[in-house]
Design a protein around this nucleic acid. Structure first.
Length: 293
DNA sequence: GCCCAGGAGCAGC
DNA sequence: GCTGCTCATGGG
């Protein structure tokens, strides 16, 4: 991997195991838009990024080396060796081979904790396009303007203090969050009042981390696991949703209907610290297979 | 109209 | 501890 600067743009060249489309479209992130094939705009860390995949690597437009080092290097998880993770997983369990071959360009993003928490509370019982719409709405109403790309305006997701001061249950309802509105407000208050502490969640073991997150109303095992995996560096987290449940039943339970709890404990035992990576390959593979059939 | 969506809380066993 | 119903909203 090499970092090259071209005028105002920057390229991550000779990069492996990184597909920008797969990484953004795999359901871990809801604050981006596809502009064209392999061409995306995303809002994260209070910044707007226009990124595209080329023949030689990933181009980050209007970005300098300092911004890359401070923000995007960590955001895109560039310091992790995905080749060795994939090799390990395939060697450990050959049933993962198809999923990893098809979805090998997925990286687990290191997203901001608060936005990720709110986004996955919104996600319950909703489809991805609508989750994105609500995240954009809350950002538009309460976040700061970041700029526009391809005629689309972008706003940063508001921080916890801003929402604590300016929003409330009715405000969240106005953003079409429905029965999740009181859950979102409880999350805001829990973070603001210090009952939920990001630093502690990061150093916790996975079990304690999930347990603490589930103190928030509207946060169950699935949402807590997503927050842990996508924003707290907890790579053992293995979120089990309807898709993963179906895939796991096919791959490991002879196609039989199996309770979520059984799948969760099987995954913890079987994949251990690599659970999160295995989960993402399986999840996205399952969804893509289904959408093409 | 019907069903389902990257679920979770709650009541009733 | 498990099962079933309900929650608000949008899309197929």
């Amino acid at each position: 991997m090499k970092i090259k600067e071209y005028g105002k743009d920057l390229e991550i060249a000779e990069v492996s195991d990184f597909d920008i489309a797969q990484t953004l479209e795999c359901g871990q992130c809801f604050h981006f838009n596809r502009i064209d094939d392999h061409d995306y705009a995303l809002a994260a860390n209070g910044m707007l990024l226009h990124a595209a995949q080329t023949d030689t690597g990933i181009v980050l437009y209007d970005t300098d080396k300092g911004q890359y080092e401070n923000i995007w290097r960590s955001y895109f998880d560039m310091d992790r060796d995905y080749s060795s993770i994939k090799e390990y997983l395939v060697r450990y369990d050959s049933r993962l081979e198809d999923a990893i071959n098809a979805m090998g360009g997925v990286r687990i993003l290191n997203q901001e904790f608060f936005e990720t928490l709110m986004s996955f509370i919104i996600s319950q019982n909703k489809q991805i396009p609508h989750i994105k719409q609500i995240v954009a709405q809350i950002s538009h109403d309460y976040g700061t303007y970041l700029g526009d790309i391809a005629g689309q305006e972008y706003y940063a997701f508001p921080d916890c203090d801003t929402l604590y001061s300016n929003a409330g249950v009715e405000a969240f309802r106005a953003c079409k969050t429905g029965f999740r509105a009181p859950y979102l407000w409880d999350a805001v208050c829990s973070v603001k009042e210090g009952r939920i502490n990001e630093r502690r969640l990061r150093t916790d073991g996975i079990a304690e981390c999930l347990e603490e997150l589930m103190q928030i109303k509207g946060v169950g095992t699935k949402v807590a696991s997503c927050v842990a995996l996508f924003s707290l560096g907890q790579t053992a987290a293995f979120p089990v949703d309807v898709w993963i449940k179906r895939m796991m039943e096919q791959m490991y339970f002879d196609g039989r209907e199996t309770p979520k709890k059984v799948i969760e404990s099987f995954a913890a035992e079987h994949f251990g610290e690599y659970g999160g990576f295995a989960q993402q390959y399986i999840f996205y593979y399952g969804r893509e297979m289904s959408s093409k059939s």
